[in-house]
Design a protein around this nucleic acid. Sequence first.
DNA 1: CGTATGCAGTTGCATATCGCAACCGAGTAT
DNA 2: ATACTCGGTTGCGATATGCAACTGCATACG
Lengths: 162, 162
Amino acid sequence: MKTKSFSNMQCSIARTLEHVGSWWSLLIIRDAMMGARRFKHFQESLGIAKNTLTSRLSDLVDGGILEKVAASDGSAYEEYVLTERGRELAPVIIALAQWGDKWVAHEKGPSTVITVKDTGDKLPRVWPRRESGEVMALNEVGMRRANGAPPKNWSEDKETDT
Amino acid sequence: MKTKSFSNMQCSIARTLEHVGSWWSLLIIRDAMMGARRFKHFQESLGIAKNTLTSRLSDLVDGGILEKVAASDGSAYEEYVLTERGRELAPVIIALAQWGDKWVAHEKGPSTVITVKDTGDKLPRVWPRRESGEVMALNEVGMRRANGAPPKNWSEDKETDT
DNA sequence: CGTATGCAGTTGCATATCGCAACCGAGTAT
DNA sequence: ATACTCGGTTGCGATATGCAACTGCATACG
């Protein structure tokens, strides 16, 4: 649903979900990353209702994640392509895919493999790392409330600890 | 909405969104990562309707992302804590937060800063990297359809190209 | 020990969104 | 010229959400 908006929240996660948090948005972005450009591509791939797709696509365009451009094949229709903003959602998409591969894999395995293009290897896990590139444990990641935000008085001082 | 289920899709992203794709789920997980444990913590932090919160929490418990445990303070109530499955959603949450910080920041700045705990530094961007730890450009990431999946005949052979 | 308050919900009702099917105007194919 | 595709829009019923009120239990308070 979307009766309540997140856009007035200060939290960046909420503000991001305002753009991509609805039920189909991230799947549309996934398909766009895989090369879908036309209305029918999305519709056939997702099995989404056409009116819902219309609505989601225009929300993504309004949010600056997709843009409408003239068709690449010279026809009179328009196509939807990712903007830079949209392309930078790749880490989110990849992290979702990797979590799914690990925890809720389909019995027939994943339908798509994310790769390092030039080697063809499976992409290493998108994961918190230090500047050095060293992979971190999750309990080495902290979350600190910024000055502007009222502190939460939840229990003692839990953080991202495992 | 959730009239249509993603769980029969083979795509890992869809299967993940089946668990965390509804409007409030990722914000609940975010709060859990920041230390929220009690029903009222989530409710006050999010301003979510209580019946909706009840529903989302039990979905997350059913999905193995949260679990109910006896209260940590000795009271008779129960609390919600992340399972390992749930904790491993951290890269998704962090990627969403970093995207939001970059593209849709609040005028007063972010409410929360994600850090490397022992140094206090801001966490480097969660991003595709090679095994070596080297950060990749997005157009170096490929997506290959696995054997089981029917190939899409979208245009030529677009991939994650920028 | 009896009442008041807090916690964690549940229930009912109004509203907003989604899925489905039907329809439609412009563009494309034959 | 006629049929068909594309990209929608419209109407309708089903479902999810917000809000307010209510409830059963636990804790607090005097």
